[in-house]
Design a protein around this nucleic acid. Sequence first.
DNA 1: GCCGTTTTCGGCCCGACTGTTTTCAGTCG
Length: 567
Amino acid sequence: MNKKIIIRTLEKIALYMELKGENPFKVSAFRKAAQALELDQRSLDEIEDVTKLKGIGKGTGDVIVELIEKGKSTVLEELQAEVPSGLVPLLKLQGMGGKKLAKLYKELGIDSAEALKQACLDHQIQKLPGFGPKSEDKILKELTDFESKPGRHPIWKTEEAVRFIEDVLEKIEGVSEFSVAGSYRRTKETSKDLDFIVATAEPAKVKEELLAALPIQETIASGDTKVSVTVEFQDLIDIDFRLVAPEEFVTALHHFTGSKDHNVKLRQLAKSQNKKISEYGVEQEDGSVATFTSETDFYAHFGLPFIPPTVREDGREFDRLDDIPNLVALEDIRADLHMHTTWSDGAHSLKEMIEANRSRGYEYMVITDHSHYLKVANGLTPERLLAQNAEIRELNKQYSDIEVLSGTEMDILPDGSLDFNDEVLSQLDFVIASIHSSFQQPREQIMERILTAMKNPHVDMIAHPTGRIVGQRSGYDPDVEQLLDWAKEYGKIVELNASPYRLDLAVEYLEMAQEKGVPVAINTDAHAVNQLEVMAIGVRHAQKSWLKKDHVVNTWPLERLREYLKN
DNA sequence: GCCGTTTTCGGCCCGACTGTTTTCAGTCG
């Protein structure tokens, strides 16, 4: 029995229990059991007694054992006999929970989206106690939105909205401080909605100006301190604003940054210290409420070091506090190893790119334009590459504060060959190999191509190793574990491509790379000078993967990297 | 259902908002 199937079954049981109107704590016990299993790194065979795990007791333990031994769960089967499966997807409707759906099923026999819609149209819902005409309208609207609204927004889409809103808030008088919070602040790949914390002594005025400045499609909720709206950018996106008093800013920011699991853990810790955390402050034993001027102070109040938003996820961060000071940070970055110029498909010249890197304070950089196979990107022929190489060597003489290295982003062709021969490659300082074509090939063929690049002694790094676009395409589906094993064997670097479109490798694979001892480079793949800024996103993505500074090659001094590349 | 250096019962993070009520349940994050 697969561990993932067990985790999903426990979660499924929780869903059905919710629809049965079970005690919410019982429901969450099943979710916690699923999470306990998921967070344990061991395989099922390696766990001797599941009930030894915190969060798994007799009830959930029995379910797990039955699943392992018989491949089924009596508990789930009984629930499924009682609760129609058509209700499960309805839990996703905004404003609909287990209790309401249970009532609708019990009173009106509603067991599917169609039945729910019909009951609304027949005005059956408003007859029930606890429901009214507004409930009916809302459900109908939700049922329609359900199909059209995108579920989660990739980070490259939310970025635009965040910038826009930041500009708006910047201009509103009476706003003393503001920040984006939520999963965006934690640098998740995708976000369900955006959260902003706004500190102000004049909430009514600020709220009014804020709402007037946004392209609002719909107002979901509008209270004194909380405003939820659907805003029209590229897509429709839900945004929550919290208007708080200036002294509450830090605790509110922390609260709405989450994650939920992180907050629960911290609140439990606070409780053990006879303190109570809310978004307004920390209530002390004597009833007074402490507020803070920084999150660092806030954490220190509980005897904790500052925990960066990027690692506030499943609660395990509290067990890894000692690793936090070693996590890679933006100021550790000494170089960018992947960027393009007007020689191929970049927007800026060699000189402009060099100046932009200098002004970021980098100690070295690598120019890596595309190779000739990539005709749409005006890829360089061997002749042009060598000409560029010469120009870079010449330009480099002009700078004493930055070392400009000559490289390439060379295509791994569909037939598995490389776009430049060894003689050309041997003249470069840094060689990137990457796949830009024939993504649909079977995995074996993709892996063959990757292996060719791995075996070539001139290749130093594999760029965007899976070819994914966050929230849009999954890439060419390589066997990443195998890829990392090869990288280890052949001494290659794997890239963390910092472009918010890519963030490739993903978190789970970066964790795997670090475990296997495969070094990582965080690169922007910039095609214009302003794109060098995405290094910050890449570094946060790296933190999320718990990458330590020393594991990231572009935090190394150039001499150390050169030494490494020789091997 | 799970948990326990105040334990085997009584908590389980905490508060806002909505729509229904006429003081609160349900949902959400």
